[in-house]
Design a protein around this nucleic acid. Structure first.
Lengths: 236, 236
DNA sequence: AAGTGGTCTAGACCACACT
DNA sequence: GTGTGGTCTAGACCACTTG
């Protein structure tokens, strides 16, 4: 059962996508929408505030709620396909090649990122290719006690599907850093790069809903196929 | 007069920074905090939800609200110093050199981004240096009818200060894309780069609270001094 | 069963924009 | 003055976890 504010949110989002309300247009006021949807004004406000965060609306006290001009069509950020390649390529032609899959004692740095002491972790090195062209080199560490039973077959498909569907865990959030780096020897080898090439590095610490860190990863992307989009909103 | 939920938000944020509540610790429940702060539970929830968005707390239905382990010390994103260099360098040693400042008829592409027709725009090319080392090359376009009266002296300091303090406008949001690019001829010239160097490109469309787009910019950063940090939270 | 967060209401009052 | 969004309350009920 979807809560009401999400019903309103989804409906408004569709109306915006389908240009029921146009760029720069003022949408009906909160009171009217509350009557239309049969809910309170606060519920409408909660829904519209989500769309403000996503960069589709502007709400002006004393004036009204307006559709942003020119707003980019932006899908909800997907934690797995964070980097944007799923938008460009789709899942169909994406292939994962496992380069290394082992259980190790983590280095001090990795243990610190995962916030663990005296725990073993999976080390996973994967190459992800689109139409057989290597695009992403992925180095992932996960504590085995948080994600038990991970097998190589899961790596060839989606680790996140295993966590969500088979283990029944949900992902709460991810803290990411994005930067550029010169290609290292692994990058050159697996992504077919040269001394003068560079990659986009995404460093990520990911949390489950139970509060546990389940993943620390560094992902190297060919720069040509990487772009990160976001909306920054002045809240506070 | 700060609204109550922001008072609660600021107070809780300070408590987290000062380790009044430790990593992984459960903080008091919403009802207790409401009594402590002399407000309703909803007001507490609104404050705590902000901290969830910022990656400092996790709220688990049926369980409680917990301090995230290992959470990065993250300052609120600053739209001007978005790129993170202000954190690294501070404002003190930052210098701006104006390379070009003119009023032009925008290209079709720029007019499209700014969502204008038949309007003149400022074109601004600035080089920003830290301790006299050039770090950032900035190409900015602003419609003159949105930002009237901009002078060269404002460019040497902060355009945003002019907009906020002298014009009295507030910035609502910015839509940004981040990617890596090979250094172009301008980059090589002004950032002292070579054929084999690359830069981080930030493309930005920025909105005022009145809904108008006031800026379209492309900023090129030396990759060594650029990092973008964010927290992605599963909301919906 | 008890505790906690999530959703929702109906209404109130305020701050602000526009006319 | 009228309309709009922003804040806030007191309380209700539900969903979920197990402190």
């Amino acid at each position: 059962m979807l809560p009401k504010y999400k019903v309103v949110y989804e409906d408004m989002k569709n109306k915006l996508k389908n240009h029921v309300y146009e760029s720069n247009e003022k949408i009906p006021d909160g009171g009217s929408l509350a009557i239309d949807y049969g809910c309170s004004k606060l519920t409408v406000a909660k829904a519209l505030d989500l769309l403000v965060q996503e960069g589709m609306l502007i709400r002006r006290q004393g004036s009204g709620t307006y559709v942003k001009e020119n707003f980019p069509s932006r899908t909800t950020i997907d934690l797995e396909h964070l980097s944007g390649y799923s938008k460009k390529f789709g899942k169909k032609h994406l292939k994962s090649t496992v380069i290394e899959f082992s259980i190790i004692t983590p280095t001090t740095e990795i243990a610190k990122r995962l916030n663990i002491i005296d725990e073993f972790v999976y080390k996973i090195l994967r190459l992800r290719s689109v139409d057989n062209i290597p695009q992403i080199l992925e180095e992932t560490y996960m504590p085995i006690y948080v994600i038990p039973g991970l097998k190589e077959k899961h790596l060839e498909e989606s680790i996140y599907d295993y966590i969500n569907n088979e283990l029944g865990f949900k992902i709460q959030s991810a803290h990411v850093s994005i930067r550029g780096e010169k290609a290292n020897s692994n990058d050159k080898k697996h992504l077919n790069l040269t001394d003068y090439d560079f990659v986009m590095e995404i460093e990520k610490i990911a949390f489950l809903e139970n509060g546990k860190i389940f993943e620390y990863s560094k992902t190297h992307h060919k720069y040509e196929s990487f772009e990160f989009n976001t909306v920054l909103v002045n809240n506070i």
